[in-house]
Simulated scan of single mutants.
Amino acid sequence: MHRHRIALGISQEELADRVELDRTYISGIERGIRNPTLLVLLRLAQALQVSPTDLLAEQPGVARQR
């Protein structure tokens, strides 16, 4: 998600405003400590102009949290 947000040139706060969520929740999702619901994932994908599948794809070089 972070990569897509940066590619659009928007801040966490701007993304949070677009999807009507708190900025700290967006931060938590990007850091892997929050798991969005399916509906939130769909809203994020729409705001970031990508498919939900793109948001779920594992990023190279990013360690999975266990």
Rank of each mutant, 00 (worst) to 15 (best):
residue 1 M to P: 01
residue 2 H to C: 06
residue 2 H to W: 08
residue 3 R to W: 02
residue 4 H to E: 15
residue 4 H to T: 02
residue 5 R to L: 11
residue 5 R to C: 08
residue 6 I to L: 14
residue 6 I to K: 12
residue 6 I to F: 03
residue 7 A to T: 06
residue 8 L to S: 08
residue 8 L to Q: 15
residue 8 L to W: 09
residue 8 L to C: 07
residue 9 G to R: 07
residue 9 G to F: 14
residue 12 Q to G: 15
residue 12 Q to W: 06
residue 13 E to Y: 13
residue 13 E to N: 14
residue 14 E to K: 14
residue 14 E to C: 10
residue 15 L to Y: 11
residue 15 L to S: 10
residue 15 L to W: 09
residue 16 A to Q: 12
residue 16 A to W: 14
residue 16 A to L: 12
residue 16 A to N: 11
residue 16 A to G: 11
residue 16 A to I: 08
residue 17 D to W: 13
residue 17 D to R: 14
residue 17 D to V: 11
residue 18 R to K: 15
residue 19 V to N: 05
residue 19 V to K: 04
residue 20 E to K: 15
residue 20 E to Q: 15
residue 21 L to M: 12
residue 21 L to S: 06
residue 21 L to P: 03
residue 22 D to L: 04
residue 22 D to T: 05
residue 22 D to K: 08
residue 24 T to E: 10
residue 24 T to G: 05
residue 24 T to W: 11
residue 24 T to V: 12
residue 25 Y to V: 02
residue 25 Y to S: 06
residue 25 Y to L: 03
residue 27 S to E: 12
residue 27 S to T: 09
residue 27 S to N: 15
residue 27 S to K: 11
residue 27 S to C: 10
residue 29 I to S: 07
residue 29 I to V: 11
residue 29 I to N: 06
residue 29 I to T: 06
residue 30 E to T: 01
residue 31 R to W: 05
residue 31 R to L: 13
residue 32 G to P: 08
residue 32 G to D: 07
residue 32 G to Q: 04
residue 32 G to M: 10
residue 33 I to S: 09
residue 33 I to N: 10
residue 34 R to Q: 02
residue 34 R to C: 02
residue 34 R to A: 08
residue 35 N to T: 06
residue 35 N to V: 09
residue 35 N to Y: 01
residue 36 P to V: 03
residue 36 P to W: 04
residue 36 P to I: 06
residue 37 T to K: 10
residue 37 T to Y: 03
residue 38 L to S: 04
residue 39 L to D: 14
residue 39 L to W: 02
residue 39 L to M: 12
residue 40 V to K: 02
residue 41 L to Q: 06
residue 41 L to E: 02
residue 42 L to C: 04
residue 43 R to L: 05
residue 43 R to H: 12
residue 44 L to R: 02
residue 44 L to F: 00
residue 46 Q to F: 09
residue 47 A to D: 03
residue 47 A to I: 05
residue 48 L to P: 05
residue 48 L to D: 10
residue 48 L to F: 01
residue 48 L to A: 06
residue 49 Q to H: 15
residue 49 Q to F: 04
residue 50 V to Q: 02
residue 50 V to D: 01
residue 52 P to F: 03
residue 52 P to R: 00
residue 53 T to E: 07
residue 54 D to Y: 00
residue 54 D to I: 01
residue 54 D to R: 08
residue 55 L to M: 00
residue 55 L to Q: 01
residue 56 L to W: 00
residue 57 A to P: 00
residue 57 A to V: 00
residue 57 A to K: 00
residue 58 E to V: 07
residue 58 E to C: 03
residue 58 E to D: 13
residue 58 E to Y: 05
residue 58 E to I: 07
residue 60 P to G: 09
residue 60 P to F: 05
residue 61 G to V: 02
residue 61 G to T: 01
residue 63 A to C: 12
residue 63 A to F: 08
residue 64 R to E: 14
residue 64 R to D: 13
residue 64 R to K: 12
